[in-house]
Write a protein that binds this DNA or RNA. Sequence first.
DNA 1: ATGGTAGATACTCTA
Length: 260
Amino acid sequence: MIFMKIATWNVNSINVRMPQLLDWLAAAEPDVVCIQETKTVDENYPADALRDAGYESAFIGQKSYNGVAIISKFPIEDVQKNFFDDDDDSPKRMIAATVGGIRIVDTYIPNGSELWSDKFKFKLDWLQRLRAFFDETCDAGKDVLLCGDFNVAIDDADVWDPESMTGKLHFSKPERAAIHNVKQWGFTDLYRQMNGNVQEFSWWDYRAGAWQRNHGLRIDHLWASASLAAKCTGCWIDKSTRALTLPSDHAPVVAEFQIK
DNA sequence: ATGGTAGATACTCTA
């Protein structure tokens, strides 16, 4: 039997988080990690240090903001960076690649800022384009994995206080409808499939003691097509990194698959 | 059209 572990982690600056990332790679031994918010231009991406740790990289970054990477112990094939209708000035929020026969799409879905803002419109539009990307380039009958920082909580069990969160950013009707439309392409939420309706979070704001009070949200997700979901043997949130000094505000989420 | 903190860049924006 051959197992494959695939993780998603918003590291909030790959260069700041590099010591923690290397420690976590050694401890958790994932085969693939989809990384978000690298926050660095490609010239400063730590490809050599990751290669020394046993991981090849595909990455697309920019100054200060955004940036995504897929790192893997196995060969990375057929890399696509951003959508076809993006240009050089577009925020770097998507990278897709094939690893071990699985089409992996790593996304840093826009935060949206405020519900009345242009950035929120951009978030909804970006989610429409993500759905179109799957319609145009992927086969729902094959092994496809969508993962990343979705910046959307799906249901009540994904938020620390559903009542106070309803209608707020990350849990408003329009963004939940837009992410649901992406899911309708043919995805299964692996965390829910493997854990039922338990309440657990993947992100805690740096402010207001959110971590200490467990005021979190589950906004980091791994969604699989039917054939890939059937191979999943476990999915968990690794909260150990969030308790470290100077942590990312997001915890890694891991899924394990039996691929043979 | 809030304050709390963290990160990158250059003292403000984004999350």
